[in-house]
Amino acid sequence: MRRRSSLPATFLVPTLAILLVLSMVPTLYAIVIALQNRELSTPGYSWVWFSNFADLFTDRRFLNAVWVSVKWEIVTVVATMVVAIGLGVLMFEVASSRMRNVYCLLFIIPVLLPRVSAAFVWKFAYHPLYGIATYPYRLITGGLIFDPLSKPGTALFAVASVDVWQWGLFFAVIVLKLLETLPPQPIEAARLDHAKRWQIHAYVTLPMLKAPLISLMFVKMIESLRSFDLIYVMTRGGPGVATETLDMYAFSQGFIESGKVSYASAMAVLMMIATVITFTMLWKRVQA
C-alpha cells in the first residue's frame, strides 16, 4: 500500500528542487565572479579567468590567512575534544544524577548564545584595565597590565578560548550521555581486574565510543569553519594579521579595504573546494 503512494514525490521533489536552486545558484555564481574582475566601486567588469587565483598564491597575506585558519582549526578542535572528554568523564565518575542534570543545563548555556554575544562577553572580560578575567592577574601582580587580545602571541588563543567555552562545555554533555549509553558489564569486569579509574576510561569506555567521538570531532571541524563572528567582534583579524582567518581576509578584501569582490570570491571558492573535498572524504571514511 505504501509503495504506490504519490507521497514521496510530492513531499521530496519541491523541497529538493528549492534546496538545489538555493545552493547551486550562489555556488556557481561564486565561481563566475571569481573569474571576473568585479569591484564594488565600479559597475563594469571583464573576464580575467584565472588571474585572481594566480595572484592569491603570491599574496603573502593570503598565505598567512591560510596558516591562521589551519592553526584555528587545530587549536579549537583539539581543545574542544580535550575539554569535552575530560569534563564528560569527570561528570560520569563523581557527579550524582541530580548534579549531572544541573551541569548538563549549565554547560548547554554558552553554546546557545549568539556568537556575537559570546564574543562581547569575553571582550569585556579580557579588557586589560576593567575586565573580570584579567582581574586576578592585576590582583596578583599588583596592577600590571595583561592584554591578551592585543598581543600577537596570545590573541588567537584568547579568541579560541571563547570557541572552546561554547563548544567544549556543550560536547562534555554529549560525552556524558554517550558514556551513559554504554553497557555496565565491561566496566564492572575491568573493575574486578583492579583497573584504576582512569585506566577503565582510557582502555575500555573511550575505545568503545570511538565511532561517535570521531563523528563529534567531525561536527566540530565543520563548526570551527564558522569563526568569523568571534574574530570580527573581538580582534577584527588583529593585532596586525595575527588572527586573520580566510573568511576574515576575504571579507576585508571584498568589503572593508578595497571592495575587490572578485578577488574575495576567488578566495571563497578555494575555501569551498578545499572544505567540500576534505569533508566529503572524511564523511565517507566515518560512514565506512
Binding site: 545552493s23 545558484v25 550562489p26 555556488t27 555564481y29 561564486a30 563566475v32 565572479i33 565543520i222 569553519l225 564558522r226 568569523f228 580566510l246 573568511d247 576575504a250 571579507f251 571584498g254 569582490v261 574575495a264 570570491s265 578566495m267 571563497a268 571558492v269 575555501m271 569551498m272 572544505t275 567540500v276 569533508f279 566529503t280
Partner: peptide, 10 residues
C-alpha cells in the same frame, strides 16, 4: 560545509 563567505559574496 559551504563556507558562509562563499555563499554571501555571490
Amino acid at each position: 560545509f559551504l563556507p558562509p563567505v562563499a555563499v554571501a559574496i555571490p
